[in-house]
Design a protein around this nucleic acid. Structure first.
Lengths: 156, 156
DNA sequence: TGAAAATAGTGCGACATCGTACTAATTGGT
DNA sequence: ACCAATTAGTACGATGTCGCACTATTTTCA
């Protein structure tokens, strides 16, 4: 049974997460080409790290955004020539998102440009502290994920 | 000197922070009145927790957003009758943001509506773990804050 | 003290996010 | 096999975010 102090602390944690999200987003976007935002990079990065050929809806779920948002993000990546949309041979309603060579090159370059900043941050926390932080964040995220699941929010 | 593994881990930390920011934002906004977003609540909450009568620019800095964004957020709060804009007697260019009774009432109600969710999350992590997490997040945030300072980004 | 530089706030335009409503295709129950 | 319900994707509109440029005011300093 959490008391008042616990709740304040929990609130403070989410407050810090919100601010950190904003700061890190700004930091990343300062290293990306003008007009390219984190979601655009994240899409290409995800397709490389997991696999390409996924459907827009699968991607929307992976990023926890509404499917309309993913439609828009994909369209931007298509305009840049980083991905291609093809029909899904398994389902006529659906599509597949495939990487292009330009998409892979863009991701390589973006990662390289981000490295110095990552190294800076990495140098301020020792490996064990980072490992602990990552574990706790992952646990918290997974809790929110499963908690959100039954509610089936975010549109589709 | 951070190696490849360290950088991947640092990247993963920011990735989790980004997703957590998105999830917690969605969770909070589901409890706020329709159309009311986290920034609107945060503004009123900040004015109560710190003090009201601050200038828009001070608030923009506190939230790490451009001043144009703060102008917009304040205008929404004014429309709702939660805050009032008055001229700053110390500086003719500037203004002050003051809470109204409606603003205080809105904040009370919003906090009460958020409590069950906070309690849920709080119950999944013991106090010591939360304290540790909060400390690490705060340290990371402060590092990004000071790192960002000299660059003087975000417009104004 | 007077002119240049700096600062606070805002209008505007470009783009991102997301809920609603729609079309096309698939699935499920009879 | 058929029709209802479900599902994938998108167009559209409302709102949020933010860079640029502008006005009004204050500060600086020669």
């Amino acid at each position: 049974m959490p008391d008042e102090i616990d709740l304040r602390r929990t609130f403070a944690i989410f407050n810090e997460i919100g601010i950190l999200g904003q700061l890190s987003r700004a930091l990343f976007e300062a290293r990306l080409p003008t007009g390219v935002l984190v979601p655009h990079f994240s899409l290409v990065n995800h397709l490389i790290r997991v696999r390409d050929g996924q459907t827009p809806l699968t991607l929307a779920r992976a990023f926890q955004v509404p499917k309309t948002t993913m439609t828009h993000t994909i369209s931007v990546a298509v305009k840049h020539g980083w991905v291609e949309l093809r029909p899904n041979p398994k389902d006529g309603r659906s599509k597949q998102v495939w990487l292009t060579e330009a998409g892979r090159a863009f991701r390589e370059r973006a990662i390289a440009d981000l490295m110095p900043d990552l190294a800076d941050v990495s140098a301020t926390l020792d490996g064990a502290a980072q490992e602990a932080l990552l574990e706790q964040l992952t646990a918290l995220r997974q809790f929110l994920d499963t908690r959100r699941d039954p509610e089936n929010g975010s549109d589709g």
